[in-house]
């Protein structure tokens, strides 16, 4: 599962743009990951601030 550190996330949408399964929803400062996520970690790799991690 991918977790978001809300104290790091800058709500920029970079993760959304690379997600192959379109599992990420960004509404203002609220980021959520849907259950279609395959834990491929592409989003983790491109996040500018390291707000995403596998848990």
């Amino acid at each position: 599962m991918i977790r978001v550190n809300i104290d790091k996330c800058g709500h920029c949408g970079a993760c959304v743009s690379v997600c192959p399964t379109n599992s990420i929803t960004l509404v203002e400062s609220c980021l959520s990951i849907g259950d279609t996520c395959t834990t491929c970690e592409t989003c983790v790799a491109v996040c500018p601030v390291g707000a995403l991690m596998v848990s």
Binding site: A14, S17, V18, N22, T42, V46, C47, P48, V49
Partner: peptide
Amino acid sequence: NTTLKPKDIESCA
């Protein structure tokens, strides 16, 4: 298909 590959996006700060 508008998904970007990591090699095709600049991660900016």
